[in-house]
């Protein structure tokens, strides 16, 4: 489904003015609206449209998280008297899907201040740059997981076999 979307978008913007960034983005939104309308008839399109919405919410949220965490780490690094107290904490994960766990660990490692060290089914070991307790880390990871689940499985619940959009 995501390929259909990208293909239609690229064709539309190519036909319009040779695929500049602006026309591509415009075409992306147009095709999304089209699919959203089609979703009134086809459940596949409806689920896909919900997925695009969750993705559109996730990306800015995550970018903001990364930048606010960067600021925290930058403040730690510039302050010469600040001593970090790092730790390896154990964090519970709800999902057992190894692909999802991989994505969560990658996103976690992208966020400054946390680094995924090891995984066992149901739990993740995270190295934290500077923390006084494990709770904020658990909370942050749970947040990432919830929002990612809303993106990947927009209808909620346990998914079937089909995974691509």
């Amino acid at each position: 489904m995501v390929f259909v979307h990208l293909l239609l978008t690229s064709l539309l913007s190519l036909g319009y003015d040779g695929a500049t960034l602006a026309s591509w983005l415009l075409a992306f939104v147009l095709v999304y609206v089209l699919l959203k309308l089609l979703g009134l008839l086809l459940p596949v399109c409806r689920v896909y449209a919900m997925r695009v919405e969750a993705g559109a919410r996730f990306v800015p949220w995550f970018t903001w998280k990364v930048f606010s965490a960067s600021l925290d780490v930058a403040l730690i690094v510039i302050n010469p008297r600040r001593q970090v107290s790092s730790a390896v904490v154990q964090v519970k994960l709800d999902t057992r899907d190894r692909r999802l766990v991989t994505v969560i660990a990658c996103l976690l490692t992208l966020t400054p201040g946390t680094l995924a060290l090891s995984y066992r089914p149901g739990e993740l070991f995270v190295h934290v740059l500077d923390t006084a307790s494990a709770d904020p880390v658990q909370q942050a990871i749970h947040d990432i997981e919830l929002r990612l689940m809303a993106w990947v499985y927009p209808m909620g619940g346990k998914p079937g076999g089909k995974h691509d959009g």
């Binding site: 730790a87 390896v88 066992r120 070991f125």
Partner: peptide
């Protein structure tokens, strides 16, 4: 060994990294 603060190294307490 990571240089850890008061929270310690949970991975080492859990028996270290191993294949599963």
């Amino acid at each position: 060994k990571p240089l850890v603060g008061p929270l310690g190294d949970a991975l080492e307490r859990a028996g270290g990294d191993r294949d599963h």
